Simulated assay, not measured.
Amino acid sequence: MPKANPRGPNPIDVHVGARIRLRRQLVKMSQEKLGDELGVTFQQVQKYERGANRVGASRLYRLSRVLDVPVQFFFEGLGEKSAATGMAEGDQTPVVYDFIQSADGVSLAEAFSRIQDSKVRRRVLELVRTLASEADEGALAH
């Protein structure tokens, strides 16, 4: 397994940054507005969201208040194995980060989270899995 680049962003910082971005987009807040609330520039917010700059404890606490989530929100989805090594075996983390970073991903997550009925959510998930499987089969046929 390749070692993480010591000069690159820490995987945990990248995860926290992705969660900051997700929540900011879900509450429809600009990077500039978030920066104003935190007393930093929007460029600093960008660096936090990319994981290029580590978010200190006091700033993470402030982020949780501004974005109206518990501090634990920023660490959700971070498994023990991925925290220790950067990535778990067969980890889908890069796919999830790419999804969270996309406008479509945020819109889909936002709309999906508004569905209250768990049976409907399961049906939507089954539909998406079926469409993905059909797309995979179609790609193989060509």
Rank of each mutant, 00 (worst) to 15 (best):
L63Q: 08
S30Q: 00
S30G: 00
R50A: 11
G35N: 08
A84E: 13
V69Y: 11
P94C: 05
S58F: 08
V55C: 03
G39H: 02
G35C: 07
M29F: 00
V69M: 11
R65V: 12
R19I: 04
Q46I: 01
T41Y: 04
T85S: 13
D36F: 05
D91A: 15
G56F: 07
L34F: 14
D91Q: 12
G86R: 11
R50E: 07
R23F: 04
Q72E: 15
Y48G: 06
M29C: 00
I20L: 14
V69Q: 11
Q46L: 01
T85P: 03
L60H: 13
Q72D: 14
R59V: 13
R50Q: 08
G90S: 04
L34E: 12
F73G: 05
L38A: 05
V71E: 15
A83C: 09
T93A: 07
R62P: 00
Y61C: 14
G79F: 04
V16F: 08
F42W: 11
E76I: 08
S58A: 15
F42H: 13
N53H: 15
G86E: 07
Q46P: 00
L60I: 08
A52D: 10
A57P: 05
G90M: 10
V40D: 00
L34Q: 09
R24D: 02
G39Y: 04
